[in-house]
Design a protein around this nucleic acid. Structure first.
Length: 112
DNA sequence: TCCCTGACAGAAG
DNA sequence: CCTTCTGCCAGGG
């Protein structure tokens, strides 16, 4: 069974963990997947708290424009870009190329 | 206890 | 088309 009665943050962490390698998603998509489509800001806030959690690939989470908004929080400016490109996601100027093509919708993959 | 900030998103002018 | 503002929730000072 899956306990979905977790806290907002835990829901975000769990959803982000479902992101497959070589795929990316947006904060708003995650927020919507957990039932709070207007809480995209909280998603980013949750990621900030998940900094210590290796199970949370925050580098696969970008804003709705495909821009690596959180790359500045990875320590090195090239860290996030390097991780994405290492997984097969082309990044250019802090932005994901063909974002729509690499975009992965969590709400479409999560089982009810 | 109140005020401000924050890795976003979407609507309005 | 581009700029500006609000809404959302939670945490920190």
């Amino acid at each position: 069974m899956i306990s979905e009665e977790k806290n907002f943050f835990d829901k975000v962490y769990e959803t982000v963990r479902q992101i497959p390698v070589g795929r990316v998603t947006s904060y708003g998509a995650i927020a919507r997947a957990i039932g709070s489509p207007q809480s995209a800001r909280m998603v980013g806030w949750a990621m900030n708290a998940s900094h210590n959690l290796e199970d949370v690939p925050a580098h696969r989470v970008v804003n709705r424009n495909g821009l690596l908004s959180g790359k500045h929080h990875f320590g090195d400016s090239n860290a996030m870009r390097n991780l994405l490109e290492a997984e097969g996601v082309p990044v250019r100027e802090n932005k994901v190329l063909d974002f729509d093509e690499y975009f992965w919708d969590p709400s479409a993959h999560l089982n009810p």
